[in-house]
Design a protein around this nucleic acid. Structure first.
Lengths: 140, 140
DNA sequence: GTGATTGCAAATCTTTTGCACTAAA
DNA sequence: TTTAGTGCAAAAGATTTGCAATCAC
């Protein structure tokens, strides 16, 4: 790890994904990927970026999240009809959703036991299996 | 079953739910509940109602779907960030989602084997578990 | 009659798009 | 340079809301 070039990892990640490492992509990548798994909406990420002094428009945040998702760096999670969430954890895993606060949390590995899946209808293939456990009650 | 009063069942259903059986609620209830399990968006239901000669506004369709959901007659399913779907089947069950066409289909009972669920975080209780199997490929 | 319900249009909110400008290679 | 990426403001959708008119009881 090269401590003199704090962006080298992010740059490499973007290059591998075929994305030009621009100022705003780098800054967003740093926010997204360098503090563990994150579940975040475009609006929230935009706010966080501005607070961190990064000049970036909301439109660019949306574009960037979709580009990262298309490149396989993130996944989009659908749990709330009014807002899109993006997840930096691209491994197969499932979620707790705190209905009252709108917060998403990973279910620790092995939390949902292996399940028997049905045969997909003819002509189709399973792309992804999402399990969402909706929770009532106080967020932690 | 009283064949001379085709609305009696729908009227009873609404009354039990504490909803005044108005013209449009009755008509929508008939469309929704009298042809098996349905997965439908507000926009689609509105179109169907108009084609059936029912005069109802899109706003009322939205309101009605939410009232039916609050009354426990339906469930809202979240699979598509751009549209809300409502399901007339209120029993615990899971879904196939045809990504390319946006169609939802029930997974037959027993299709998803019983699964081991994690302990909900302290202070919370499980409200619902949703399993969505996203499918690529041709819709049937 | 009187209070709940409806329709319409306007408002709101999230997300996308068009296009001139800027920056990366 | 040359082309991809960005910002802004406007557009596009989906959904909600305010309020006068209408309907169920």
């Amino acid at each position: 790890m090269n401590r003199e070039r704090p962006y080298s990892k992010a740059i490499a990640r973007l290059r591998e994904a075929g994305l030009r490492p621009t100022r705003q992509r780098l800054a967003l990548a740093k926010l997204l990927f360098e503090s563990g798994n994150r579940h975040i909406s475009a609006e929230l990420l935009h706010g966080e970026a501005r607070r961190a002094g990064i000049r970036v428009s909301l439109a660019t945040v949306y574009n960037t999240l979709h580009q990262f998702t298309a490149a396989g760096l993130m996944n989009e999670i659908v749990v709330d009809p009014t807002r899109s969430y993006f997840d930096t954890n691209t491994a197969e895993h499932h979620h707790f959703y705190f209905v009252e606060t709108g917060r998403l949390e990973d279910i620790p590995d092995g939390g949902v036991g292996p399940m028997e899946l049905p045969e997909p209808p003819p002509g189709t293939t399973i792309k992804r299996v999402d399990v969402v456990i909706r929770l009532d009650g106080n967020d932690s």
